[in-house]
Nucleic acid binder design. Sequence first.
RNA 1: UCCCCAGUAGCUCAGCGGUAGAGCGGGCGGCUGUUAACCGCUAGGUCGCAGGUUCGAAUCCUGCCUGGGGAGCCA
Length: 461
Amino acid sequence: MQRSRVKDILNREAAGGPVLVQGWVKTRRSSGAVSFIQISDGSTLKDLQIVVEQSSPHYALVESLNTGCSVSVTGELVESQGRGQKYEVNAQTVQLLGPADPEEYPLQKKRHTLEFLREIAHLRPRTNTFGAMARVRNGMAYAIHRFFQERGFQYIQTPMITASDAEGAGSMFRVTTLDLQEPPRRDGAVDAAEDFFGRPTYLTVSGQLEAEIFALALSDVYTFGPTFRAENSNTSRHLAEFWMVEPEVAFCDLDGLAELAEDFLKDIFRYALDNCAEDMAFFNQWYDKSTIATLEGIINSSFERLTYTEAVKLLESSGESFEFPVAWGLDLQSEHERYLTEKRVGRPVVVTDYPRGIKAFYMRLNDDGETVRAMDVLVPRIGEIIGGSQREERPDILLERMQQAGLDAANYWWYLDLRRYGTVPHAGFGLGFERTVQFATGMQNIRDVIPFPRTPKNVEF
RNA sequence: UCCCCAGUAGCUCAGCGGUAGAGCGGGCGGCUGUUAACCGCUAGGUCGCAGGUUCGAAUCCUGCCUGGGGAGCCA
């Protein structure tokens, strides 16, 4: 007999017929002449109830089952006599596949703290919360690919090992095969020429520069892959390894990019609500009672557009007392972003045209000479979820901006070549996948929306 | 990296100078088509680590480690 998934069984039109189900025991209770086993196979949030009569030859085995055991069950699917589930399985055979010593198995029937579950990341997928998280995360990843594929974007795989520190921002993880105890030296310094690639290399912080190469050939592309930051950030919103989605669009300006970002967010949130409804309801009930209403609000409203200059004026006239100063030329702090999106507007805000001094060299300079065509999409609670810009496509201005940023243009010869040969206006943004899942599910800590979080001092799993 | 808070039983916590506690989970027994079932009994702890103060430290002090919240950096 072929194994049926719990999800498919519970979705059947009618009871009846033999079934084979396999999964892990959530709980087991006895009641006189009957024993009930709740099993889950991760295909859905719901458990399947297995009913075993005392007269069954397997009853003694069933009595010994506990949370965490894996079992294989055959039986007949019937309408449930009890409340709480539509169907249940009257067991004919119950086979123990793998025991889980109840003296040692750390998961209990009751709720655990998320902090504790992080310490047992190899077992937490078996909990309701992390099963739901995995399914929602999967659904949103699928929705992202679907969104771009339906619009004719090409999925580009950009390298994870790089020699250029994109944006000149952030600490990067060094990649090396040198003997760290006794590295080869030249003139006293470590000789990178002896290293695997013959020069210093790092884990990428962004696939943007490579995505630009393909945008200037295939027009509409996106990346979706891991990125790395060696920042010593200890917050509920930062990871050392996270997944980023980076569309890059040729013949597109910042207005077109902002439209794309808005359509994109609405589409993937819509997908999560429609296709992960059961899991989303779970998060809404247990973690953030407003998350579904928030997502529906986003889907059904248009994003507010503000220039940086307008945002600063709003903040200055807000009457709020901020911890950090607000002034034109200073970057917006978390508290400022949250005021704008949470209190002032109550929905996502797209802030554009930031001062050139606080943004990256590759962002297109406006005619005023003071601002660049950058945009941040701010959402309630998380703050910045998307950062993007129209890229500087004019070679002379790009070169000048690189020199002002203190970058060695020689290292970016290929990036400059893109402007030298057949340059076109283009724009792109980056979306932190985990922050998006975090926002959609209402989970407080980003470490709980990625299977194996990498944070400072944490790589156990 | 900075500021704040917390580390006591497998889990969640109480105790805050004078002999280590509860609930849940585990074990044993009972009971009932049960829904994180219920009832009774029971086992279980170098009080994060290292120093110090004290007649006496889980409790006070110092340092370190780990976790959490906030900030910076950012996605």
